[in-house]
Design a protein around this nucleic acid. Structure first.
Lengths: 220, 220
DNA sequence: CCCTCCAAAAATATCGATATTTATTGACAC
DNA sequence: GTGTCAATAAATATCGATATTTTTGGAGGG
């Protein structure tokens, strides 16, 4: 007599649904940076009560995607070139640490997960699943650091970076770059357990993308 | 016809009150690490409805003081020696960066704020206000880094560290250490704009405390 | 004696209705 | 014009009541 979730494997909670929806709206720019988020409006769009919407927004605060001002509601986090630069800097510092730790603690299991993640990403090139596979690859690189908080920070920063990629709007005319080759370099060095090379390749990968994005963000 | 806040300058929102209360309960250990947090129970103790309590708990998720499990409520974040070690490591890495940036961007204004913060802390020695002044001193050190996200992370980590200090229970018999001298070293180096010396003094300060706390945490 | 399964109890999640607060607008002085 | 202020409108915050889920505590089999 309950809601048999219409063929979706599992429905879980309204709060979770709201969390994922709003998160997506902010990451894609459907909710523009800095814009006020009206509960009533979202409540309508998501077809649920105000409570789960509020709770989802409160949770999104953790991810620095939503700002909450007491008694004055929520707004999508502001975006600026400075903010983007800060994200890039923090990412580089934290992922450098995390990757080095991952490699230092390398195990066959991690190695195998990394091989698979890289393979899936390669296979997904050009398809809709690429974005997700790409994310998994980068997460897997850091997943052996035995440092949950650092991984959480890195996750957050990854998503914030994605947001800026979407905000940059214009098609990613990644000029002369060979992204798969960049990934391969990172991957090979990690598998070879060469921390210096892996870190250098990873940071270079981020900084190239960052430099490119920064150019398109000046008018933000 | 509204609640005239009983002589407290400003009451603000129930959610904020709940946030501060629960935060304090977790930092002090009144809500033990890992323990389930029952809404109904808190609702009673804080004398408010369930909504602000839920919202406060959702917000505390950002600070890594509360864990939320979908459909299964909230619990106080777990604590462990490993987690403490991770906090220490992250603090050192991030504060090192932040302090260096603060010094690199040094201005007379920052210098003055730092002088005052140090003075207040010194004056508050032994009093109830010391904790707060100490926190302000450390925050001020990093406050000139022009890096809001990094400052936010450092704040979080500071609080998490305080929590472990409280969890370690036994009186801080800081053996042979001269804490005021340690602070003076950090302060002097920062004012002298000697980033290497300041960072070294700061990290040494943290690591000494960390080493001491780690000893008391083994049974956690 | 140990599982499995099913009610009862407890807790969480969510809704809809209010109370409070903030934002807006336009009249009225200056 | 320009600024202030009150009345109105809009939005947020909060409550109390339900609906859903998860947990608990046995009651029967195996």
């Amino acid at each position: 007599m309950n809601m048999i979730d219409t063929q979706t494997g599992k429905e879980s909670s309204a709060t979770r649904a709201a969390y994922l929806s709003v998160r997506d709206m902010i990451l894609t720019g459907e909710l523009p940076a800095g814009q006020k988020i009206k509960i009533e409006q979202l409540r309508g769009k998501l077809d649920m009560g105000a409570s789960p919407v509020r709770e989802a927004l409160s949770l999104l605060t953790s991810d620095m995607l939503v700002e909450r001002i007491d008694q004055r509601g929520f707004r999508a986090a502001a975006a600026s070139p400075e903010n983007f630069a800060e994200i890039l800097k923090l990412r580089c510092a934290l992922e450098d640490m995390a990757l080095r730790q991952s490699i230092a603690l390398a195990t066959p299991d991690w190695e195998e997960r990394l091989v698979l993640a890289h393979h899936h990403m390669t296979r997904a090139a050009g398809t809709a699943q690429f974005e997700e596979a790409h994310k998994v690859f980068h997460k897997t690189l850091l997943s052996n650091a035995a440092s949950p908080m650092m991984e959480r920070y890195c996750d957050q920063l990854y998503d914030l970076n994605i947001r800026y990629r979407n905000l940059a709007a214009s098609e990613p005319n990644y000029q002369t770059r060979d992204i798969p080759a960049e990934h391969k370099d990172i991957f090979d060095a990690a598998i070879a357990r060469d921390a210096d090379a892996a870190s250098a390749a990873l940071l270079s990968h981020y900084r190239l993308t960052g430099k490119y994005l920064a150019l398109q963000l000046t008018g933000l």
